[in-house]
Simulated assay, not measured.
Amino acid sequence: MERKSIDEKFRRKPTGAAVMRSDLTDALYRAFFEEWAEHGYTGLSLERVAARAGAGKAAIYRRWPSKLAIASEAIERLGLTLTDVSDRGGLAEELEAYLLMMRRALRHRLVRKILPDIYAEGARSSELVPLLDKLASGRRGAGVEMIERAIARGELRKEIDRELALDLVPSALYWGMIIVRRRITREQIGRQVVALVAGLKAI
């Protein structure tokens, strides 16, 4: 299943004397996401996170200095940022790979609950702004590389509005999966790619 690759990020196999520490760290990550999904970031309790992981609160503070620190590292670990869209020889092929990677992340049951909460909390408080910036930077960095390759191949104009392009690429998929909770098939992604290629050539 596509979800498996995301879940496996929690199950890094440690070696030697670090086995117990690594296992506990993985348990704390899982507990943190479960609590976040159930209670939202504001209602998230590190005491409950520790209890769910079968540990004391001190186990959290030995690893992270704050709730924000564990949130930032946990989000990166979960793989919400989109990276490594390699050169596939054409804009359409790379857009498809990019959207399929994004769909894989958005299908995860915890991501579907946590991601909207991140943006809602970011609008209410500045605490999560660095985390939002990290998410945007990872996604947009991959998008910039993809657009620059398309320009180099002559598929897009050098004068393309890059910021608008980076906004357009993920918008329909995010809206469909997270806002209106629609199941997006590979065929639908294919139609999004056709529309995106036409749109990107026009801006």
Score class of each variant (00 low, 15 high):
51 A>T: 05
87 D>E: 10
60 I>F: 05
89 G>S: 08
88 R>W: 02
65 P>M: 05
52 R>P: 01
88 R>Y: 04
51 A>S: 12
56 G>H: 13
78 L>P: 00
59 A>Q: 10
67 K>H: 01
55 A>P: 00
72 S>A: 15
75 I>V: 15
61 Y>W: 08
84 D>F: 06
63 R>I: 07
82 L>T: 01
67 K>Q: 14
80 L>M: 11
69 A>S: 15
83 T>C: 03
64 W>V: 04
78 L>D: 03
70 I>G: 09
63 R>A: 13
80 L>Q: 05
59 A>H: 11
85 V>Y: 07
69 A>I: 11
89 G>D: 08
83 T>V: 11
78 L>S: 07
69 A>L: 09
76 E>Q: 12
88 R>F: 02
84 D>R: 13
56 G>E: 02
83 T>F: 09
81 T>W: 03
79 G>Y: 10
82 L>F: 02
82 L>E: 00
59 A>N: 12
60 I>Q: 09
75 I>Q: 03
61 Y>E: 08
55 A>S: 14
51 A>N: 07
85 V>A: 05
53 A>I: 09
65 P>L: 06
55 A>E: 00
79 G>D: 11
75 I>R: 01
80 L>Y: 07
54 G>V: 08
86 S>L: 08
66 S>Q: 12
62 R>V: 01
84 D>C: 07
74 A>P: 04
63 R>Y: 05
48 R>S: 12
70 I>S: 10
52 R>Y: 02
64 W>L: 04
57 K>Y: 02
68 L>N: 08
49 V>F: 03
74 A>C: 15
61 Y>I: 09
81 T>G: 09
64 W>S: 07
54 G>F: 06
56 G>Q: 14
86 S>C: 03
86 S>N: 08
88 R>H: 11
80 L>H: 02
58 A>C: 00
82 L>C: 09
89 G>Y: 07
53 A>M: 08
62 R>L: 10
56 G>L: 06
58 A>P: 00
51 A>W: 03
74 A>I: 03
83 T>P: 00
50 A>F: 02
57 K>A: 10
88 R>I: 02
62 R>S: 10
58 A>I: 05
83 T>Q: 12
66 S>T: 14
84 D>V: 00
77 R>D: 08
81 T>L: 13
56 G>Y: 02
67 K>S: 10
52 R>E: 03
63 R>M: 11
58 A>G: 12
65 P>H: 10
59 A>R: 07
66 S>I: 10
53 A>L: 06
74 A>Q: 07
87 D>N: 14
78 L>F: 14
57 K>R: 15
84 D>L: 09
82 L>M: 11
89 G>A: 07
86 S>D: 11
61 Y>S: 06
78 L>M: 15
79 G>P: 13
55 A>Q: 02
66 S>R: 12
64 W>H: 15
54 G>I: 04
82 L>N: 02
83 T>L: 11
77 R>K: 15
86 S>M: 04
81 T>D: 07
48 R>H: 13
82 L>Q: 12
62 R>N: 13
52 R>I: 01
